[in-house]
C-alpha cells in the first residue's frame, strides 16, 4: 500500500481508537491503515459500529473525549501528524483544510442565522475578508450549490432536507478545503434528492479538485462516486482497492457476504444469502481475525493470528490469508 509520498494527502498508520466506558472498552478502530491520494475519492463502507465515523472524527480530532481515546497510530495529513497538533492549529485546519459533512443537515446548521451568514461565517474564520466580501463570496458559493439569490436570507427551517444539505455542502467547500469528509451525506434524503446531491458533489469535487472520504453503508453510492473503496469490519479494514477491481472481484469473505446480502435489482432470487450470526460485541472482539466466527473459510489459525493486508492484485488488498493463499498470493 505505498504510493509516492508526494501524491499522498492523507496517510493513516496503525490508528487505534477506543471508547472507555463503565461497562468496558469499546474497540472502535483497531490498527487502521489507510491512504488517500490527492484528488481521490475514497468510499468507506461498513455496517453500524464498524468504526467509520470514529475514523472520521479521529482525522478531524472531533472525537468526544472522554470516552474516546486515541491509543496509538499516526494520521499524516499533508505530511504532518494531525494527532500532534494543538487545538489552536486544529481549528484552522478544520473547515480550512479539512471539512466535514454530517448525516443530518439540521444539526450542523444554526437555526437562528440566515444561510448566507452561516457560509460567510466560515469564510471569515479562515480568510481575511470584510463582512461584505464574505457575504458576496457566500452568495457565490450558495449559487454554485444551486441556491438562488432570493433565498439567501432565509433560515434553515425554511429549506427542505435536500436544500439544507446543499447549504451544508456550501459551508464545507467555502474555504476550498483539500479534504472533504462526508459522513452518510445522503442517508437522510430521498432517492431523487439523493441523486441531485450526489451529482452536485461529484461536479464540485471535479471543479475544486478536492479529495474526499465518503462514509456510507450504501454500496451503490460508492460505485457511482468513488475511485477507491475500503471495507471496514469491527474497527478494521478488511478489504481495500480501487472501486472497479473490488466490485468486480470482491475477495474478503465479509465483502463477498456484504455484496450478496443486497437485493439485486437486475436479477430475481428467492432468498438472499446472509452472513450467519451477528456483528461481534465491540467490547469483546474475537481473537485473531474478528470475522472468523462467522466466516465459512475460517481455519484454525484465523482465531490466533491477526491478518495483515495482502496485495492480491495491484492496488487491491485483503486482510485474509486464507483467501490470498487460495489465489496464490500468500
Amino acid at each position: 500500500m505505498t504510493m509516492n509520498a508526494n501524491d499522498l494527502l492523507l496517510d493513516i498508520r496503525e490508528l487505534t481508537i477506543h471508547y472507555v466506558t463503565d461497562n468496558g472498552t469499546v474497540h472502535a478502530v483497531e490498527g487502521l491503515n489507510l491512504e488517500l491520494g490527492r484528488g481521490e475519492t475514497l468510499g468507506l463502507v461498513g455496517e453500524t459500529g464498524a468504526g467509520k465515523t470514529t475514523t472520521a472524527l479521529g482525522i478531524t480530532r472531533l472525537l468526544p473525549v472522554p470516552p474516546g481515546v486515541v491509543r496509538g497510530g499516526q494520521i499524516l495529513f499533508d505530511g504532518e501528524d494531525v494527532l500532534l497538533k494543538d487545538e489552536e492549529e486544529m481549528r484552522s485546519i478544520r473547515g480550512g483544510k479539512i471539512a466535514m459533512i454530517f448525516q443530518d443537515p439540521m444539526t450542523s446548521l444554526n437555526p437562528v442565522m440566515t444561510v448566507d451568514k452561516q457560509v460567510a461565517e466560515m469564510i471569515k474564520l479562515h480568510r481575511k475578508v470584510s463582512e461584505s466580501e464574505a457575504l458576496e463570496q457566500a452568495a457565490e458559493m450558495l449559487d454554485l450549490v444551486g441556491i438562488r439569490r432570493e433565498r439567501l436570507r432565509d433560515y434553515p427551517h425554511q429549506f427542505s432536507g435536500g436544500m439544507k444539505q446543499r447549504v451544508v455542502i456550501a459551508i464545507a467547500l467555502a474555504c476550498d478545503p483539500k479534504l472533504l469528509i462526508a459522513d452518510e451525506p445522503t442517508t437522510a434524503l430521498d432517492v431523487t434528492i439523493q441523486a441531485q446531491v450526489l451529482e452536485l458533489m461529484k461536479n464540485l469535487k471535479r471543479q475544486f479538485g478536492t479529495s474526499m472520504i465518503l462514509i456510507t453503508h450504501d454500496l451503490g453510492i460508492v460505485a457511482e462516486t468513488c475511485d477507491k473503496v475500503g471495507i471496514m469490519y469491527a474497527g478494521r479494514l478488511v478489504e481495500y482497492g480501487d472501486t472497479k477491481s473490488l466490485y468486480d472481484n470482491p475477495n474478503h469473505p465479509y465483502t463477498v457476504g456484504l455484496f450478496k446480502s443486497v437485493p439485486d435489482l437486475e436479477e430475481d432470487c428467492d432468498e438472499l444469502s446472509v452472513i450467519p450470526g451477528l456483528m461481534p460485541d465491540p467490547m469483546d472482539l474475537p481473537s485473531g481475525c474478528a470475522f472468523h466466527p462467522r466466516c465459512s473459510h475460517a481455519e484454525e489459525a484465523c482465531s490466533r493470528e491477526r491478518p495483515v493486508m495482502i496485495e492480491i492484485e495491484p492496488g487491491h488488498f485483503i486482510a485474509c490469508p486464507v483467501r490470498a493463499r487460495a489465489l496464490g498470493k500468500a
Partner: peptide
C-alpha cells in the same frame, strides 16, 4: 422513471441514463 433511474447500483461501469429531477416534492 425518475425514481428508478435514481437508485445507485452497486456495480461499477453499469451506467444508466439518470433522470435528475428538478426541485423538491
Amino acid at each position: 422513471q425518475a425514481l428508478l433511474s435514481a437508485i445507485p447500483i452497486p456495480k461499477v461501469g453499469v451506467r444508466r441514463d439518470r433522470i435528475i429531477l428538478e426541485g423538491d416534492v
